[in-house]
């Protein structure tokens, strides 16, 4: 196993908070910065990473076939045409739900670590077997959450489990941030979420309609040329993940209408 490979679990507990979108965008961004990157879809019951990357028609084999010696690893890896440093490996087929064990996932991640600088593991929602399998394959974790009650609560459960493993570091990404709702105190603030979960903050991602559009097209935002709030955030997270000393994007600077400024003034502590 290569010592320099970073195998990172991307998990959340709750579904629909943006794990897969983050995995796809980070994968592209890291690959684009020159690091060879593999994204492993550990959610083989309901896999979607292929769709987000626009690779759904190119999957022939899965990691399962590699372990069963039906094919070589190179054959199962789906290289991205526009970003050759990135490869997708689906863990398994939706039709075979319960063959996989933590040891299998470990073997797959060891195989991948021989070839890649980064391995991002897109974890299934929940805290059951699928999550524990994915966990066994990783050394680091990124917990994705939204600034809302149910997502933070589920993230807390996941963090509780991660803390009993030897995963280190565990970092937090707060997704779907709406600066103007935070300004008017109708959404949990970044500080609130971070304080409650007591994890180091890797970054935030702003709510952005472009995410939906890019999903429709099967082209992650970090692959496109345009400028969009979420793209800027994904790039920021990717840089921070690879150790660059850049500041976290502050939602306060992302909403500068007069109304938001006034709303922030209203947050001044009076006593």
């Amino acid at each position: 196993m290569s010592e320099n490979t970073r195998t990172i679990l991307i998990c959340s507990g709750k579904g629909g908070v943006g794990k897969t979108t983050l995995t796809a965008n980070l994968g592209i961004a890291l690959a684009n910065s020159g690091a060879t990157t593999a994204v492993l879809d550990a959610d083989f019951g309901l896999r979607n990473l292929d769709l987000l990357l626009g690779l759904e028609n190119r999957i022939i084999y899965t990691a399962q076939d590699v372990l069963d010696k039906n094919c070589r690893l190179e054959q199962a890896l789906v290289r991205h045409k526009k970003e050759p440093n990135l490869a997708l490996l689906p863990a398994g087929d939706p039709r075979m739900l319960d063959w996989m064990k933590p040891e299998d996932m470990k073997k797959i991640s060891e195989l991948l670590s021989e070839k890649f600088d980064f391995v991002l593991v897109d974890c299934p929602a929940g805290v059951e077997d699928g999550f524990k399998n994915a966990l066994a394959a990783c050394q680091e974790a990124i917990v994705v959450t939204n600034p809302e009650l149910s997502a933070v609560r589920d993230a807390d459960r996941v963090i509780g489990i991660l803390n009993t493993s030897d995963i280190e570091p565990i970092q937090l990404v707060i997704n779907r941030v709406r600066p103007n709702m935070m300004a008017s105190q109708e959404m949990l603030s970044i500080e609130d979420v971070q304080e409650i979960l007591s994890l180091p903050l890797l970054g935030i991602v702003l709510e952005d309609e472009q995410v939906i559009i890019s999903t429709n097209r099967g082209e992650p935002l970090t692959l496109t040329d345009g400028r969009s709030p979420a793209k800027k955030c994904y790039l920021n997270v990717s840089q921070r993940l690879s150790g660059k000393d850049v500041a976290i994007i502050d939602p306060k600077n992302e909403s500068n209408s007069l109304k938001d400024k006034f709303m922030r003034l209203m947050q001044t502590k009076v006593f």
Binding site: S184, Q185, E186, M187, D192, Q267, V270
Partner: peptide, 28 residues
């Protein structure tokens, strides 16, 4: 207490929902 909370209190309005969210979350 923030300026906004103070004004809300004086006007007898509900406080901002983020506070409620934080308190409920901490309890649960």
């Amino acid at each position: 207490m923030t300026l906004r909370d103070l004004i809300n209190k004086l006007l007898g309005r509900e406080t901002a929902s983020a506070n409620t969210a934080r308190e409920r979350l901490q309890l649960v």
